[in-house]
Amino acid sequence: MTLIDTADSYGPFVAERLIRKALHPYPDDLVIATKAGLTRQGPGQWRPVGRPEYLRQQAELSLRHLGVERIDLFQLHRIDPAVPVADQVGELALLQQEGKIRHIGLSEVGIEEVEEAGRSARIVSVQNLYNLAHRDAEPLLEYCEANGVAFIPWVPLATGRLAEAGGPLAEAAAGHGASPSQLALAWLLRRSPVMLPIPGTSTVAHLEDNVTAATVTLTDEQFEALSKGA
């Protein structure tokens, strides 16, 4: 694993501080991606805030909380409909020019929004909901493949009915001696060369289960069955 994805609103701020406590000083090959632009007022309460001065403030706080001089990948957590996209992404471009962030990404966007943002800065990644059971972002994934943009699926472990007894995921998992979630990750890793899954975890055992998914190789028949079974 060489990518850790977090955000200022996870906590808020708790996740960034935990990452620093656990891993600083960071290995040279580790990429830490964080996000700003989606505020958390309470359980289940989220509000996009894309004012340039706010995004700059949050980037500065993330630098401090992570203990880095430059953020590898800084993602606009949500596009704020009340603020022009050029102003939001343009501020991230200024931070990039100042050497405070290396790369710029987006989250929960469509192709038109990626192209609009691309007029203000180079977009290297997008992060959208995508998994075996939810593939509404398929056109965006294909766009990313065609344009060399990394695709970071969040909630990658959702399997829906595919994991039910007798379903293609349950059968493939049994054949590999693996868990359905491991097969779900294995499918994502095979689905596209630009795919960077970010499965969340809260226990060491779950983390180890996720990591083992990288060793699972699906047959062509299993991959096709899972691809058609959603």
Results as ranks from 00 to 15, higher is better:
Tyr143Glu: 03
Glu145Cys: 14
Glu145Trp: 13
Ala146Ser: 10
Asn147Ala: 04
Gly148Pro: 11
Gly148Trp: 00
Gly148Arg: 05
Val149Trp: 01
Val149Thr: 06
Ala150Thr: 11
Ala150Ser: 12
Phe151Ser: 08
Phe151Ala: 09
Ile152Trp: 03
Ile152His: 01
Ile152Phe: 00
Pro153Val: 07
Trp154Cys: 03
Trp154Tyr: 15
Trp154Asp: 00
Trp154Gly: 04
Pro156His: 04
Leu157Lys: 06
Leu157Asn: 08
Ala158Thr: 06
Arg161Met: 15
Ala163Cys: 06
Glu164Gly: 05
Ala165Glu: 14
Ala165Asp: 08
Gly166Thr: 10
Gly166Asn: 07
Gly167Leu: 15
Gly167Lys: 06
Gly167Gln: 09
Leu169His: 11
Leu169Val: 11
Leu169Met: 13
Ala170Asp: 14
Glu171Tyr: 05
Glu171Asp: 12
Ala172Arg: 11
Ala174Ser: 14
Ala174Asn: 07
Ala174Tyr: 08
Gly175Lys: 14
Gly175His: 12
Gly175Phe: 05
Gly175Thr: 04
Gly177Pro: 13
Gly177Phe: 12
Ala178Gly: 09
Ser179Ile: 01
Ser179Thr: 14
Pro180Ser: 07
Gln182Ile: 08
Leu183Met: 05
Leu183Ile: 09
Ala184Trp: 01
Leu185Asn: 02
Ala186Val: 03
Trp187Arg: 00
Leu188Ile: 07
Leu188Gln: 02
Leu189Gln: 05
Leu189Ala: 05
